[in-house]
Each structure stands twice: as structure tokens, then as C-alpha cells.
């Protein structure tokens, strides 16, 4: 019976290295963050006792208006970029799905890869250059249609918009590719039959294609929410969260508390709260998007 026993242990042996690694670098730090979140922990004052303070850090975070503002700003950002990314992404997907013009379509299909591959930090650099108020190309293009130069990164609302535009540039192709994958799942004969029934493009989209698009749309909604909760590189490079705190989304805010204010106790409590949101999102993603697997 040694054969059967060794058979039972084989998957354990195969899995152990990966599981141990993820426990050590993924789970252990999170547990450490959890214990830090119950303590006073000021990095700049290493000799201060790291007292256990119970839920005091959490109470401080939840009672702090700047935390709620950062969170509110994050969801506002989501509300600004997501509808545009979905609408333009859908338009791109529909254009790519229609037959004809195959050379142009192949060109667009390849171009979609460029924004997705561009290093997030470099997207921030490009944003700073293009939205520069003196020699930026955006103001130049606006000038051509008669709009006066805008101090894009110098004012709260326009800085927020400029960052949002760079996010839209980078992530619309992702939405387009996900939706295109959904469109290709529509059985060709059903689509042809609907066209012969003299259904307009809108009717076909609503009644024939939409059911096939829904899983992709769900995936986009959850992943983009998770990604915007993570969004750091682009903002850090483009605006550092400024002017003031106009573009300080939640991940940038927590980074500032942890590494510029050096209050690890408070920052850890914030990170744990963010982690709870993450766990909820993951559950949703798995339940709604992996339906056929789960």
C-alpha cells in the first residue's frame, strides 16, 4: 500500500514550496500588519515603547476626516473613469468585432497593447509632460480649437481630471479586449440571424450580445475597483497626491502616513481596513466571474 500512500503525498510535495513561500511573504506580513495595527509604532522614534493600544488606532482612523476624504476621492475617481472606460472600451470592441477593414482593425488591435504595457510610473511621467501648462501638448491642442491654456496640474479639479485621463488612456484598452473576448463568444449564426431579422445595431447589442458581455463587464467592474484601490505609481509620479491632497487616493494616502509621517500603527490599521475591502472584492470576483469553475 506504499504506492497509494505516496500517491496521496505527491500533491503535498508539489504544492509545499509555493504555499510556504506565499505564507511567508504574503500572509505573514499581513498578520504582522494586523498586530502592528493594535500598537503605537512611530518609526521616527524607535526608543518609544510600542504599547498595545487595542482598537485606538482603528478609532483614530475611522474618526479621521482625511481618511474618509481619501476613500471618498478614490470612489469619485472610480465613478469618473469607469463609465468612460466602459463606453469607449465597448465602442472599440464593437469596431474590432465587425468584419471588414481587417488591416485597420489589426493595427488598432496591436495599438491597444501599448498603453497596457507602459510602466505605470512612466505613464505618470508622460502625463506630467503632456499636461505641463507652458509647453504641454494638451494645452497646445486646446489652443488650436481656441481654448485658453489651463494650469492642469496646478489646480485641484483639473489635476484630478488629468490623472483620470491618463488612467483612461492606460486602461480603456484592457476593457476593450475583455469585451471583445465576450463578443467573440456570441455564436455567429445567432448574430447573422438577428441581422437578417432587420434588427438594428442597438437591438442586436441589447438582446443578442449583452448576455455574452455581462461576465466580462462584471470582471472589469471588480478588477478596476481593486486596481484603483491599489493605484499608486501613476499618482505618485504625476502629482504626489497634490495640489494639496486633490489627487491623493487611498493607497497614496496610506503610503504617506506610513513612510512620510512614519506612523506605522495608524497606517497598518488603514491597510487592514483596505485589506477587508480587498477580501470582499475577491469573494465577489470568484463568486460572480468564476461561476462555471466554482
Amino acid at each position: 500500500m506504499t504506492g497509494a500512500r505516496s500517491e496521496r503525498w505527491t500533491p503535498v510535495l508539489f504544492l509545499a514550496p509555493a504555499v510556504v513561500a506565499l505564507l511567508a511573504i504574503g500572509l505573514y506580513p499581513l498578520l504582522l500588519a494586523l498586530t502592528t495595527s493594535f500598537r503605537t509604532y512611530l518609526v521616527a522614534k524607535p526608543n518609544l515603547p510600542k504599547d498595545f493600544v487595542g482598537f485606538a488606532n482603528y478609532a483614530a482612523v475611522l474618526g479621521d476626516p482625511t481618511f474618509w476624504q481619501a476613500l471618498g476621492r478614490t470612489f469619485l475617481f472610480l465613478l469618473v473613469v469607469l463609465p468612460i472606460e466602459l463606453a469607449v472600451g465597448l465602442a472599440i470592441a464593437l469596431l474590432l468585432h465587425q468584419p471588414g477593414l481587417s488591416l485597420l482593425r489589426a493595427l488598432l488591435r496591436l495599438s491597444l497593447v501599448i498603453p497596457l504595457a507602459t510602466t505605470f510610473a512612466v505613464v505618470g511621467l508622460i502625463g506630467r509632460l503632456m499636461f505641463n501648462d507652458q509647453f504641454g501638448v494638451v494645452n497646445h491642442l486646446l489652443g488650436i480649437v481656441g481654448i485658453a491654456p489651463v494650469q492642469w496640474l496646478g489646480q485641484p479639479t483639473t489635476a484630478f481630471l488629468a490623472v483620470a485621463l491618463m488612467d483612461i488612456w492606460q486602461w480603456t484598452p484592457f476593457v476593450a479586449l475583455v469585451l471583445l473576448a465576450g463578443l467573440t463568444m456570441v455564436p455567429a449564426e445567432i448574430e447573422e440571424a438577428a441581422k437578417l431579422d432587420a434588427g438594428g445595431a442597438w437591438a442586436i447589442l441589447r438582446h443578442i450580445q449583452l448576455p455574452f458581455l455581462l461576465p466580462g463587464i462584471t470582471a472589469v467592474l471588480i478588477l478596476r475597483t481593486a486596481d484603483i484601490l491599489k493605484l499608486f505609481d501613476l499618482i505618485f509620479v504625476m502629482t504626489r497626491g497634490g495640489p494639496g491632497s486633490a489627487t491623493e487616493l487611498i493607497a497614496v494616502y496610506i503610503q504617506r502616513i506610513g513612510f512620510r509621517v512614519f506612523d506605522q500603527g495608524i497606517a497598518s490599521a488603514q491597510a487592514i481596513l483596505l485589506l477587508i475591502v480587498t477580501i470582499v472584492l475577491s469573494r465577489l470576483y470568484i463568486r460572480l466571474v468564476y461561476r462555471e469553475v466554482a
Binding site: L22, I25, G26, P29, A251, Q264, I272, L275
Partner: peptide
Amino acid sequence: ISHRMLSPICVALPFFLI
């Protein structure tokens, strides 16, 4: 799969101390 959702800042804080 859930690591796809994890915000790096959650790991970065404690990992800096480690």
C-alpha cells in the same frame, strides 16, 4: 487568485519592518 486584488501597500508596510 485573491492575491490579484491585494493592494501592495498592505504588504509594503509590514515588509519594510521585516
